[in-house]
Simulated assay, not measured.
Amino acid sequence: MLGIAAAVLFFIAFLINAAEIGTNDTFTSVNVMLLGLTVLALHVAGIGSGWAARTRRR
């Protein structure tokens, strides 16, 4: 799930950069790209990957 969110953030950063959209200092393409990298790092670390099924051993 976080991998999809990272892809969306990278796409938004690409659109801001490619279309040369004027944004304020907080919402620049570099900042959105860094947010995407953070979300991608969380995804790779295994956070947000969903619940693991517990198995019972008897």
Results as ranks from 00 to 15, higher is better:
Leu2Met: 05
Leu2Arg: 03
Gly3His: 06
Ile4Arg: 06
Ile4Asn: 04
Ile4Ser: 05
Ala5Asp: 06
Ala7Trp: 01
Val8Thr: 11
Leu9Glu: 04
Phe11Val: 05
Ala13Gln: 01
Ala13Trp: 00
Phe14Val: 04
Phe14Ile: 07
Phe14Gln: 03
Phe14Arg: 04
Leu15Trp: 08
Ile16Leu: 12
Asn17Val: 01
Ala19Ile: 11
Glu20His: 12
Glu20Gln: 11
Ile21Leu: 14
Gly22Lys: 15
Gly22Ile: 13
Thr23Trp: 09
Asn24Glu: 14
Asn24Cys: 12
Thr26Arg: 11
Phe27Ile: 13
Thr28Arg: 02
Thr28Leu: 10
Thr28Ser: 12
Ser29Trp: 06
Val32Ile: 15
Val32Lys: 00
Met33Thr: 06
Met33Gly: 02
Leu34Glu: 05
Leu34Gly: 04
Leu35Ala: 12
Gly36Lys: 00
Leu37Asp: 03
Thr38Ala: 15
Thr38Tyr: 11
Val39Thr: 00
Leu40Trp: 01
Leu40Ile: 04
Ala41Tyr: 08
Ala41Asp: 03
Ala41Arg: 09
Val44Ser: 15
Val44Thr: 15
Gly46Leu: 02
Ile47Met: 10
Trp51Thr: 09
Ala52Met: 12
Ala52Cys: 07
Ala53Phe: 14
Arg54Trp: 10
Arg54Phe: 10
Thr55Pro: 02
Arg57Asn: 14
Arg58Leu: 10
